[in-house]
Design a protein around this nucleic acid. Structure first.
Lengths: 216, 216
DNA sequence: CGGGTGATATTTGTATACAATAATCACGCC
DNA sequence: GGCGTGATTATTGTATACAAATATCACCCG
């Protein structure tokens, strides 16, 4: 994406995720243009992307609002992500080269570094985690699958930036990744699928436990 | 979508699918604006949609080209569609109301009407077929699933408008739909999933047999 | 004659002005 | 006082002019 358009996208996204505007609030293109410091034209491009990612929604009369995800919405997204990413893991198991496998291992070492400390570096963990999953999706060599997953993976992860992970959550993730790597090394698609399934399902519950009961 | 933008989308889409421009050919926004009879602004909106549907692609320098789908691309899309639509069938089996089931039956009667004639009305068949699958996806009550499938279902179906269906292809489709309806009536998600799976897989082979060997 | 380098043309990206549309509000009527 | 109805305002949609980026081509140098 081009400069202004990309900037608008990033700024607006950050603005929403920071919580500066609450779910359900209206946002006008003019206002977003001010926030992003560009004209309405690139804002409109950015808005289309954000609509596609379901961070913004339109009323039936085309007015813009910050999306308000219900519990059902979130459950749905996790279910879809699980279905698609299990498929990706299966495909990846048949395609990962030695080199890519090695870099997957490297990424997981980084992830461990980030959490095996007195106070875990959640930011680095999230980044490494993102890279890990991205590498698998990439190895699945299915551009459309990747495109679909991109939307599903990004959204909930970033939604709660200040989310509380327990130390155990983080360690279990690292262990899951290890087992995924083992499944890949063994070139066992079924194994990879199964591990990915439980990995994501656990993530779902840990997500709802932390964010759910309080109040969406 | 608004008037000009929607018109641009339809016109450009038709123009591409009609084959007036071949795969790989460049298209400028100006040219598309002429074709659609609107200015470049709504054309850009339309182009974004068509890019998302993968009918248009951009060179690394942002120039526009008609997409050129490889056999792998098509296979990939069918595989994804199968995965997602099987899931939809499963969910639909648990959710379809009596009323919706009845209208599904009605749609399939229309479909039969269209093909049980000396010369089958392929246009009506395609429309009824589309409605049938859409109703199921709708009944799955998963907006994101619907959004994803919309892209996958539309594209290949329309790609070959002049496609040759054998009379047997058409009849088998109707029979598959009957069995799907039976599975829904029995509220048997596994059955529905299985039927949908074979239905789509058959469609894939009939598609590649008809369109594959020749060219493309 | 081949390859690079700069001028020119093509194409996409952005800003802005204006048009169309939908919501809001005030007013009058019942 | 409640409710329709029209004027006003807010917001999105479109066209157009211009800026930035990229490709194309001609020319010169080796």
């Amino acid at each position: 994406m081009s400069r202004a358009s990309e900037q608008a996208y990033q700024q607006i996204r950050t603005h929403i995720l920071s919580g500066a505007v609450g779910p359900g609030e209206q946002l006008t293109e003019d206002r977003l243009a001010q926030i992003a410091g560009v004209s309405r034209t690139p804002v409109r491009e950015a808005v289309r992307r954000l609509e596609d990612e379901l961070l913004l929604v339109r009323s039936e009369s085309k007015r813009l609002f910050v999306a308000d995800w219900s519990r059902d919405d979130i459950e749905e997204m996790f279910a879809l992500r699980q279905m698609l990413e299990c498929h990706a893991a299966e495909r990846a198991a048949n395609r990962l080269t030695k080199g890519k496998l090695a870099s997957l291992e490297a990424v997981n070492r980084t992830l461990r570094d980030a959490i095996e400390q007195p106070s875990p570096d959640v930011r680095r963990f999230l980044e490494a985690n993102r890279a890990f999953h991205e590498a698998i999706i990439d190895a699945a060599e299915s551009p459309r699958l990747g495109q679909m997953l991109a939307k599903l993976v990004e959204a909930p992860v970033v939604l709660r930036t200040a989310r509380n992970y327990t130390a155990e959550d983080l360690r279990q993730s690292a262990r899951d990744h290890d087992e995924l790597i083992a499944a890949f090394a063994a070139r066992d698609p079924e194994w990879a699928r199964a591990v990915m399934g439980s990995h994501l399902r656990r993530a779902f519950h840990s997500f709802t436990n932390a964010a759910g009961p309080g109040g969406e």
